[in-house]
């Protein structure tokens, strides 16, 4: 479950339909979860993540993994 402030990595391309071509360059980027699903903790929801040098985007969760502290 992702929370605001979690440090994450985009570790792969997503299979989700919301993944767009320009997002391929996000793979490998690190960032911070800035707005998880704030309604129901739905693992299928798109979450907002700020990526270092790549801006803030709403991405599917299957491409995101938490970084250890």
């Amino acid at each position: 479950m992702l929370h605001r402030g979690d440090r994450v990595e985009i570790f792969r391309k997503s299979d989700d339909e919301s993944w767009q071509n320009y997002m391929d360059e996000f793979v490998g980027a690190h960032g911070i979860i800035t707005d998880p699903d704030t309604s129901i903790n739905d693992s299928d929801a798109l979450v907002e993540v700020s990526l270092v040098d790549k801006g803030t985007h709403r991405l599917p969760q299957d491409c995101i993994r938490k970084l250890e502290d």
Binding site: R4, G5, I32, T34, D35, S50, V52, T56
Partner: peptide, 8 residues
């Protein structure tokens, strides 16, 4: 605002 700026 949910202030993503402040997180970064």
């Amino acid at each position: 605002c949910t202030r993503p700026c402040e997180f970064m």
